[in-house]
Design a protein around this nucleic acid. Structure first.
Length: 223
DNA sequence: GCCCAGGGGGCTC
DNA sequence: GAGCCCCATGGG
C-alpha cells in the first residue's frame, strides 16, 4: 500500500503540473511537421538547436526536393550540409541524416509503416544503434512520428523538475522518464501535450531565475 | 560580447 | 559509466 500511495502522490503532482501548464498555454499541437519522415528529420536537426533555425533548414530541404530517405541517400553529403546549414552543426547533422536514410532503406525498404509496426521497445533499441540517434531523439521519433506512448525527456524537463524538487539535479534519463510513464496514463496525446508544454514553459521561464512570479507552476509543489 | 537552443558522438580514465 | 571536448548558427 505504501508503494501505491507514493505512486498516487507522484501522479497527482504530475497531473497538477500538467493541468496548470495546459490552462496557461492550451494545446500546442506538436510536432509541427507535415508527415512522419519530416518529424524524424526535425528530431535530428533540432539537437541543441533553436526551432526557428531548424525550420529554415527544413524549408531548404523541401524546396530542394530532399525530404525522403531516397532523396537524402542520393544527394552528396556536402550539398546536404549546405541545406541544413541554418540549424548549426551542419556537417555532423548531414552525416546523421545520411545514417538515418541508409538505415531506413536497408532495414525497411523506406517503409515507415513497417518501421512503426515493430514492437516499441525493440524499435527503440534499434534506433539507438543508428548514428546520431540518442535517447531523446529516439523517443521523439517514437512519440511524435510513430505515435507510441513514450515520454520524451529533455533539458527543460530535467531543469524544471529539479527546481520543483521532484528529482535530483543530475537524474538519469531513464529514471526521469519512468517517473512520468509509471505515474500517468500511457496515452500518446497526453505525453505529446505534456512534453510540448514543458518545452514551451522552459523557453519562457527556465532562462530566468527559478520561481519566477509569473510562472504558471511556481506553486505546484512544496518548494 | 555572452548565453544557450526541443543532443549526441567519441575519447579518456 | 562518468567526465570532457567537439560539433556551429542565430536569437535574445
Amino acid at each position: 500500500m505504501q508503494a501505491a500511495s507514493t505512486k498516487t502522490e507522484a501522479g497527482n503532482k504530475l497531473q497538477i503540473i500538467y493541468q496548470r501548464l495546459f490552462d496557461h498555454y492550451g494545446p500546442l499541437h506538436w510536432w509541427p511537421a507535415e508527415e512522419p519522415f519530416e518529424v524524424m528529420v526535425g528530431a535530428i536537426l533540432t539537437q541543441s538547436a533553436a526551432w526557428t533555425n531548424v525550420q529554415k533548414a527544413i524549408a531548404n530541404l523541401k524546396s530542394n526536393g530532399v525530404m525522403s530517405p531516397q532523396q537524402i541517400r542520393s544527394i552528396p553529403v556536402e550539398a546536404l550540409s549546405r541545406l541544413v546549414y541554418p540549424s548549426g552543426y551542419y556537417n555532423a547533422k548531414a552525416k546523421k541524416l545520411k545514417a538515418l536514410a541508409r538505415y531506413l532503406g536497408e532495414r525497411y525498404d523506406d517503409s515507415l509503416s513497417a518501421l512503426f509496426a515493430r514492437d516499441t521497445y525493440e524499435l527503440r533499441e534499434e534506433l539507438l544503434g543508428v548514428h546520431g540517434i540518442g535517447e531523446e531523439t529516439a523517443d521523439s521519433i517514437l512519440l511524435y512520428a510513430a505515435i507510441k506512448p513514450i515520454f520524451v525527456i529533455d533539458a527543460y524537463t530535467r531543469r524544471t523538475f529539479f527546481r520543483l524538487g521532484l528529482c535530483p539535479e543530475k537524474e538519469t534519463y531513464h529514471r526521469l522518464q519512468a517517473m512520468f510513464m509509471d505515474n500517468l496514463p500511457r496515452v500518446p496525446q497526453l505525453f505529446n501535450d505534456y512534453h510540448a508544454l514543458l518545452v514551451q514553459h522552459g523557453k519562457e521561464f527556465c532562462r530566468k531565475r527559478p520561481l519566477c512570479s509569473e510562472c504558471p507552476i511556481r506553486d505546484a509543489c512544496d518548494y
